[in-house]
Every structure is written in structure tokens, then in C-alpha cells.
């Protein structure tokens, strides 16, 4: 564990908590893509199957459980409890366009052709693009509430910090995993446009509004 990895995990945790609190406090999930949230639930379910096979550390188990439970809780709040506030007219990205290619790619490019390893790889590929429905929703409506922007910033920072963690581990521990690194790069790049808007607008107190 190094500082980048820890900050990455904490940033991820913060993103999840911010999103759940936003939905809970405002009793609304307007502006949030349910498609992205379903994809994240699929991502963490397929990645953390090792919870039942291997024990790594209390930290590892605790965080995995939080990520899985929070993903399902978010989906529950969006599709059941606060269904009436869900922006489904704008949330039109087709999930199969991301799930199917990720699955095919995981079957083709993986470290080992075993069920757990392919599912892990699939989750890494899918995670890298799972935010697309959310970014698509923001671009369709042309704006995002500040709290949604904070959520996206924390979520985007998480994989960016993991990239630094991988650079560190490469030099310090001679450890690297190309699948995770390439997917992590893709994931972070997808946020670049958003990061730019966040820094130039939201941090200056303005609403995140896309140019018309």
C-alpha cells in the first residue's frame, strides 16, 4: 500500500458516499445515470467474486464489501425507491454496447483463461467505460448539479491516482499489470474533458454547463 493507492481508494469511497448522500438527502436521483450505476454494480460483482475464495486483508475485504453493497444500494434507490425522479428520458445509452465488447475483449485478452480471471478482466474493461452513460447524460442535458460534478471528480480522480500507484509499484516493487494499466489509462482519459470543465467552472463557483 502506498499513498497514491490509499488516496485512490479514499477518493473512490468518497465518490460513492457523495452520490448516496446526494440521492438520499434530496430524495432525488435527477441527473444521475442509472445505466452507469448498473454497470458499476456488474463491475464490482464480477471483480470481487474472490471475496468468497481468498482472504487478503481486513482492509481489502471491508472495501470490497462497501463497494459492492453501495453499488446495489444506489441501483435500488434509483430504480425502486426514488424511481419517479429518475431521468430515464435522457439516460438512453445502450449498456450492451459496453458490456458485450468488454466481455469479448476479456475472453480474448486476459492473463489466464479461467472463470475468475476472465471475470476480473471483464470488470476492469467494463469499469474503464462504465461512466460513459453518465457523461452522455450530462452532455445531453448540457449541465450537471455541483454535487454531481463533485461525485464525478472524485470518481475520476480515483483511477488517476491508481495510475500513479502503478508507476510507483513498477519502480518500487517491480510490479505491473498491463491490463489494469491500459484500462486505467483509458478510464482516466475519458474524464479529461470533464476535469477541464470542473476546474475551470465548478471550482470557481459556477455550475457545470456545457457550451451550447
Amino acid at each position: 500500500m502506498n499513498i497514491f493507492r490509499l488516496l485512490g481508494d479514499l477518493s473512490h469511497l468518497l465518490a460513492i458516499i457523495v452520490l448516496l448522500l446526494k440521492i438520499w438527502k434530496t430524495r432525488s436521483c435527477a441527473g444521475i445515470s442509472g445505466k452507469s450505476q448498473i454497470l458499476f454494480a456488474i463491475v464490482y460483482t464480477s471483480r470481487y467474486l474472490d471475496l468468497v475464495t481468498t482472504y487478503i486483508s481486513a482492509y481489502n475485504t471491508f472495501m470490497k464489501l462497501i463497494f459492492v453493497v453501495a453499488a446495489y444500494a444506489t441501483v435500488y434507490l434509483m430504480y425502486i425507491k426514488f424511481k419517479a425522479t429518475y431521468d430515464h428520458n435522457h439516460d438512453t445509452f445502450r449498456m450492451e454496447f459496453l458490456v458485450i465488447p468488454s466481455l469479448i475483449l476479456a475472453l480474448l485478452i486476459n492473463h489466464e483463461l479461467t472463470v475468475l480471471e476472465v471475470l476480473w478482466t471483464f470488470s476492469i474493461y467494463l469499469e474503464s467505460v462504465a461512466i460513459l452513460p453518465q457523461l452522455f447524460l450530462v452532455s445531453k442535458t448540457g449541465e450537471a448539479e455541483s454535487i454531481t460534478s463533485h461525485y464525478l471528480f472524485a470518481l475520476g480522480s480515483y483511477r488517476g491516482l491508481y495510475l500513479l500507484n502503478w508507476v510507483y509499484r513498477y519502480y518500487a516493487e517491480d510490479h505491473y499489470d498491463l491490463i489494469a494499466i491500459v484500462a486505467g489509462l483509458v478510464q482516466t482519459v475519458l474524464y479529461c474533458d470533464f476535469f477541464y470543465l470542473y476546474i475551470t467552472k465548478v471550482l470557481k463557483g459556477k455550475k457545470l454547463q456545457l457550451p451550447a
Binding site: D9, H12, D50, S57, K64, E112, E117
Partner: peptide, 10 residues
Amino acid sequence: RETANNKDEL
């Protein structure tokens, strides 16, 4: 190398 069963990263 880490395998699916001993990946410590989240």
C-alpha cells in the same frame, strides 16, 4: 504475478 485469487488492489 498476481492471479485472480490474490489481487490486492481494488
